[in-house]
Design a protein around this nucleic acid. Sequence first.
DNA 1: GACGTTGTCCTTTTT
DNA 2: GGACAACGTC
Length: 755
Amino acid sequence: MIDKLNDPQREAVTLPPGHALVLAGAGSGKTRVLTTRMAWLIQTRQSSPLGILAVTFTNKAAREMLARISAIMPIDTRGMWIGTFHGLCNRLLRAHFRDAGLPQAFQILDTADQFAAIKRLLKANNIDDEKYPPRDVQRFINCAKEEGQRPGDVEAYDSFRRRMIEIYTLYEAQCQREGVVDFPELLLRAFELLSRNEPIRNHYQRRFRHILVDEFQDTNNLQYRWLTLLAGDGASVFAVGDDDQSIYAFRGANVGNMADFERDFARGAVIRLEQNYRSYGHILDAANALISHNTGRLGKNLWTEQGAGEQIRVVEQPTDFAEAQWIVDEIRSLVAEGRSRHEIAILYRSNAQSRVIEHALFSSAIPYKVYGGLRFFERQEIKHALAYLRLISNPDDDTSWVRVVNFPPRGIGARTIESLMDQARTYDTSLAASVARVPGKAGSNLAQFLVSISQMAEATRGLPLPELVEHVIEHSGLIAHYKLDKEGADRIENLNELVTAATVFAIEEHFDGLPAGESVQWVSSATDSMGDSLTPAENISPLASFLSHAALEAGDNQAQAGQQAVQLMTVHAAKGLEFDAVFITGMEEGLFPHENSVLEPSGLEEERRLMYVAITRARERLYFSLAQSRMLHGQTRYPMRSRFLSEVPDQHLKWLTPKQQVAFDGHGSEPRWAGASRASIPNRPSVAPRSPTTGVLVGSQHFRIGQGVSHGRFGEGTIIGLSGSGLEAQAQIQFRDAGTKTLALGIAKLDITHG
DNA sequence: GACGTTGTCCTTTTT
DNA sequence: GGACAACGTC
């Protein structure tokens, strides 16, 4: 088991009890170390499988860990606490719902549900949503919770914040009344449960002697405190992470947790995994050089035994369109050389960039997959179906009530809902409980809806989960509604898929055949090494369990089937993945690094880490591409080269288009390089500019070499070269202050000043 | 209550 | 450029 590991890996796996920090560089075998560590603890009888808690950030990582540990040793992983922070906290809260102050059938709001709940709250309380936009309120509440703060703990140093805190208080009351918890609440509740309830805390502290944490650099402050609380004085925390790959500060991750952990717990027990098994030397050295520009790193230098490999190919194109087209052409030749399409990835900083690339791929009939689209449980029709299911489980869930009270349409309009909300607010009850107080036709429509919900609840009593789901998608009217819709066929298919998902879930969770609405009480008969009973009774009905599952695991983010497809995704989405060939696109200031991040040093450093992640995805071949002009937000921009390009030493780069700007003399067919005396131009351009000309007509303007022009951003300049014609026409312009640029004349707005 | 028109805002994302 | 929300009209 451990003899296939390299020295630092083996050292990490076999560390004696005690806290430890493993700094695992990209491609250094991080997951392998984590899973082997668990297997080793079990095999050497230092722990039973049930004495281990392993926590990850994504369901995918948790699943992979489970799969790999089962592959190493044949143990029963059921009952093991391996999961995401949110999943484990949910489990904790389900088991101790009373002590946590929650109803048994509490439901989980995903980000969109929470947003809707906040909008509803602002409206019900007549709060000005111009001054307090729901987005900002949501961020305020979530940030507070992630710092472990209840409304009373947040500092109110001005009237604006005081009001925010009031809204936070109202929001908490609303959630409590409705029996729902949002994502950060799962963590905060679980944390409070452990910290306030000594018997429960003691129980879990005695049980979990080994806590393993994946992607430790992504933990937020509350997660850090949760871990240290759970560990208590006795457990060993084995934290694995890479500070250079911390790219989630924007959602509360605190890289500082790594340094804190080293200082406060892991003193001395720090192991670095620096041997990389993924990429060739040029790629790794480029990554190392780039990331060395960051300050305050824990320090790490990747190396490989694989040799230098190829340099990074760099390409500069006049437009984003040309950039995309060039990538498509290059992919064609990569495929012609025998590479698989699914081993080629195109990465971009922001999703908006994918459109042009998709267009180019589509026009060339190259199959591709875009990651990061809508997920199964986030689809409109699925959310609607889930809302009905939630109302059956808990009629006081107002978020679900509002979502489907008039869907499919049944004559309940905004005014009716408003008056219902008024009633609910006046009497401090849920919407469902206020129906009787709404008079007239509106009231009877509402009453009818209420009846149909309770009829569905009645009719499905005692039914197993899949049958229940099937009944509800039919009797809610969703199927009938989408049948009338011309584009409803896909939605109906998805609704049927929901029944399948319920079937699979019921089998996996051993709920098959059990009535979906009744709580399953099961007590694990196993005991841990100290003779403690392991788990208190789990209190959850198959239906409530399925609904948590739907909220906690929104389904695969992966696009359509089709193995042989080029992979398109953001750099964030690429973390943890690897490909033979990688294109990093849009290497431009404002885009990568993103303009919103460059003002703060910490923002810029995160962008640099993002670039580091991007570079280290490539095994063999890496491309940087950039465009001199780009359509963004409906405007053409003329970005400068990304500073990150100059942070990678020249020796690792191979420019396929000229690094220096080209200029044409206007005669002959051979381009002449500006500054031709410099020997540093490494290569002839593989994309030769079109035949040079002395003048071109673009629109109503006739451009000539030697003309003086002025440009909105670059200022005054002189045309020193022209090529192409019509839409392809480009000019090389020597600007007085902005250097030499190649601009597409059909796109750039130029005024002729003289000549 | 349904539909068409104008106006605003644009990173990154998992749970 | 495009998604989505808010407004105005039938």
